[in-house]
Amino acid sequence: MSNRFHLAIEAGKLSNTVKFYTDVLGCQLDMSEEGKWQDVDFWGNELTLHQSKPRNSDSLERHRHSVDMGDVIVPHLGIHLPLEEYQRVKASVASSVGFVDKPYIRFEDTDYQQETFFVEDPNFNVLEIKSMVKPRD
C-alpha cells in the first residue's frame, strides 16, 4: 500500500454517488462506515466518499482554466488508464451519465499524446479520465 494516493471528497447522498463509482466507472469498494463514508479503490488509489449535503447544480460556480486544447474545469481529479480500461470506462460514461467535456486528443504527435474526457459524479465532483499513447512508468 505504499505510495497510494488518498483523497476525501464530499459525496452528497452517499448511496447515489457510490453507485456512480461502482456501476458507471467500475470501481471496487473497500472500507466504510455505514451512512458516513465509503472508500473506493480508484484504480489503486484510495478515494473516500463522505456523506454530505448534496450540491445543487443551480448553485454551482464552475471555473475553467485555459490550457493547450481549450478550457478545463478546475478543480478536478483524474486518473491515467491503460487504453483498454479507458475505452471501457468511456463507453460506460457515454451510455449512462454522459460527458461534461467529450473525449478529445491532446498533445497530438508528441510523447504526451493522450485522449481525455471529463465527467461529473452525482455530487458534481469533476473527474478527468485519460489514456496516454506512451504511458510513463
Score class of each variant (00 low, 15 high):
68 D>G: 15
44 G>K: 05
89 V>S: 10
123 N>L: 04
105 I>P: 01
46 E>W: 10
96 S>K: 13
67 V>T: 12
135 P>A: 10
45 N>D: 14
73 I>V: 15
96 S>T: 15
12 G>T: 01
76 H>F: 05
20 F>H: 02
29 L>Y: 00
120 E>T: 06
37 W>H: 08
129 I>C: 05
108 E>R: 12
24 V>R: 03
14 L>W: 01
45 N>Q: 14
131 S>V: 05
12 G>Y: 01
118 F>T: 07
61 E>F: 06
122 P>K: 06
10 E>P: 02
41 D>M: 01
78 G>W: 11
87 Q>K: 14
115 E>R: 06
137 D>A: 13
105 I>G: 03
130 K>E: 08
29 L>R: 15
78 G>M: 14
4 R>D: 10
12 G>M: 00
129 I>F: 14
68 D>W: 07
40 V>Q: 03
126 V>Q: 02
69 M>I: 11
121 D>E: 03
104 Y>F: 06
53 K>W: 00
125 N>W: 02
119 V>A: 01
71 D>T: 05
120 E>A: 09
71 D>E: 15
74 V>N: 04
128 E>L: 08
116 T>S: 15
71 D>R: 07
28 Q>P: 01
27 C>I: 07
111 D>Q: 11
34 E>A: 08
92 S>C: 12
73 I>F: 05
119 V>R: 04
95 S>F: 02
82 P>H: 05
45 N>L: 02
28 Q>V: 02
30 D>E: 14
88 R>N: 11
89 V>W: 00
17 T>Q: 04
115 E>H: 03
88 R>G: 03
26 G>L: 07
62 R>A: 15
7 L>A: 13
79 I>S: 07
54 P>V: 09
73 I>E: 13
69 M>C: 13
22 T>G: 00
135 P>D: 10
66 S>I: 08
85 E>M: 06
119 V>E: 00
80 H>Q: 09
125 N>Y: 00
113 Q>F: 00
96 S>Q: 10
8 A>E: 11
111 D>C: 03
120 E>R: 06
62 R>C: 08
83 L>H: 11
110 T>Q: 07
48 T>M: 12
6 H>K: 06
5 F>A: 14
1 M>P: 06
102 K>P: 06
22 T>R: 13
79 I>H: 03
55 R>C: 06
135 P>E: 09
105 I>C: 04
1 M>Q: 05
125 N>I: 00
70 G>V: 11
12 G>C: 07
71 D>C: 10
45 N>P: 05
56 N>H: 12
90 K>G: 01
88 R>W: 05
48 T>L: 01
128 E>Y: 10
56 N>Y: 04
100 V>S: 07
31 M>L: 12
61 E>G: 03
26 G>C: 04
85 E>I: 15
66 S>F: 10
103 P>W: 05
93 V>F: 10
44 G>R: 04
127 L>K: 00
16 N>H: 09
88 R>V: 14
33 E>S: 09
35 G>Y: 04
33 E>P: 01
15 S>D: 14
3 N>L: 14
34 E>V: 09
45 N>E: 07
110 T>W: 09
3 N>Q: 10
89 V>C: 10
82 P>C: 06
135 P>I: 07
27 C>Y: 03
73 I>H: 01
43 W>V: 08
